[in-house]
Simulated scan of single mutants.
Amino acid sequence: MGRIGRWSTMVLGLALTTAACGSGQPLDAGGQVTPIRRAPAPDNEFTPVELEATADRLVSEINASAIRPMQMAVVLKNANGFWKPVVTAANRAMAELGVSGSVIGPVAPWEDGPESEVLQDQQIEQMVEDGAEGLGLAPFNDLQTAAIDEAVMQGAHVVTLDTDVATSKRSIYVGTLNRSAGATAGKTLLMMLPPPPGTVIIHGSTNADGSSGLERTQGAQEVLARAGYVVLVGQSTWTSDGETEDVEWMTTQIGTADPPVVGMIGLFNISYRCAMAAEAAGAPELPIVTFDFDPRTVDYMRQGRVKATHIQRQYYQGYLVPYILYGIKNIGLDATKKILAPQLVDDSRVNTGVDVVPADKIDAYNDFLGSIDANQ
């Protein structure tokens, strides 16, 4: 039994395989390759029309090329919660492309640590060994550099999503640009605050090893400090007792900060802990803005406790990655980057942006997520 079999209790593997006479695409009644056809975009105020247009351009150029078969894999940190829309989208894209591919990620809650990192390195190695010519990867920061570089040396193109490894040999990053996303959150909260002096708590990151979280935190911190507020940053914790630690720290700061706390920002999918801390401190009126669309965050939004949240469009990250990998295979890296230019902020990073969702737009946003099967 190979390593994939031994991972079966920890890993979700969803395989899609479609091939036609070695073309990688099904044939029509006349024996011709059927052009790639995408599902139509939903008509909704939250539909990112610029990302949809980019995907359409990729399809148009790929259809005009000599389409070749391809095997790919998307390796994620997890397959549940925040990551469920990524799984849905990546599988949908691979089905539309007609490629052979799989999406894998632990189904149990994960923690940053050596075991998770080693497991992902093994997954990368196994996918390449099994024939993947392209890898979409949500890495654990820079810890997968060697595994990525080895995959590239073996001939696989690597596209990172959600978290980047800019020092590696990956071809393209697809996801949120964290400093600008943090700045957006800071500006969202700024409109709700009384004039300074005042203290703002950021439930973010102080970890230099977690560069993406630190960048998002610094983006929010810069906006608020420039506006004249004192900013206190707490390190978000994902361990089994992290919720208690985070809530206790923020509760203490609300009770002791000088000048008094006037607002809070949560920068990750555990943002709802800000509302828990405000409640524990007897200050439920504090304006709070968050990230992501965890069900607990949504509950606090419906109660009026969280005023707005910022969604990272993880569905579109998962959807674009297979198309980009297929584009690199069929039309080349440079031609693919040219198509991605409207979202390409430098030579290799695609900014998928964020959706700012105020509390009174929950139902409209849920309708949008439902229309693309992207509910968490």
Rank of each mutant, 00 (worst) to 15 (best):
P48F: 06
R170K: 13
D373L: 06
V247E: 00
E133I: 04
M191F: 03
N351Y: 06
D334R: 10
P194C: 09
Q144M: 03
E150Q: 15
E61A: 15
E96T: 04
A183N: 09
A185V: 14
E243P: 02
V262Q: 04
G234V: 12
V165S: 06
G134D: 01
R226H: 12
P322T: 04
I331K: 04
G186K: 04
P322E: 01
V118F: 10
D142T: 14
Q126N: 06
F268T: 12
D56W: 05
V345D: 03
T17M: 08
A341H: 11
F291S: 11
S60M: 08
Q235L: 08
A308I: 07
G186F: 01
P139I: 04
G327R: 06
E125R: 14
E111Q: 14
M301S: 08
L12H: 12
L137G: 01
G304C: 13
R349C: 06
A257C: 10
F293T: 08
V356F: 05
V99H: 00
V231S: 10
I67V: 15
G228S: 12
D142F: 09
G282K: 13
R296V: 15
P109A: 03
Q235K: 10
I148E: 00
L320M: 15
D258R: 14
A151C: 06
N330P: 07
V354Q: 08
V350W: 00
E111S: 12
T34R: 15
G318E: 04
K169Y: 07
S240E: 15
Q312D: 08
P69W: 02
Q317C: 07
A41P: 11
S205N: 11
G213W: 09
T237I: 13
P197F: 08
D121C: 10
E45L: 11
V174H: 02
T239M: 08
T309L: 12
S348W: 13
P196Q: 07
I36S: 04
V165A: 10
E129Y: 11
P287S: 12
V33Q: 14
V59M: 05
E215K: 15
E111C: 02
D367G: 09
L193F: 09
D28T: 02
R6V: 07
L189C: 03
R273G: 00
Q120K: 15
V103F: 04
V231Y: 12
N375A: 10
D367H: 05
A227I: 08
P69D: 07
E52C: 15
A108E: 13
A95I: 03
F268K: 01
A147G: 01
V33S: 08
P40H: 08
G182P: 10
V74G: 00
F291A: 14
I331T: 07
G134Q: 00
G81K: 04
I328E: 00
V261I: 08
V158K: 02
I202M: 07
T239N: 12
E245T: 14
M191G: 13
T256V: 13
V321P: 02
C21T: 09
D162C: 04
G304K: 10
Q303V: 09
T237M: 13
S102N: 13
D130C: 07
M250A: 05
V289S: 04
N63M: 08
M1G: 09
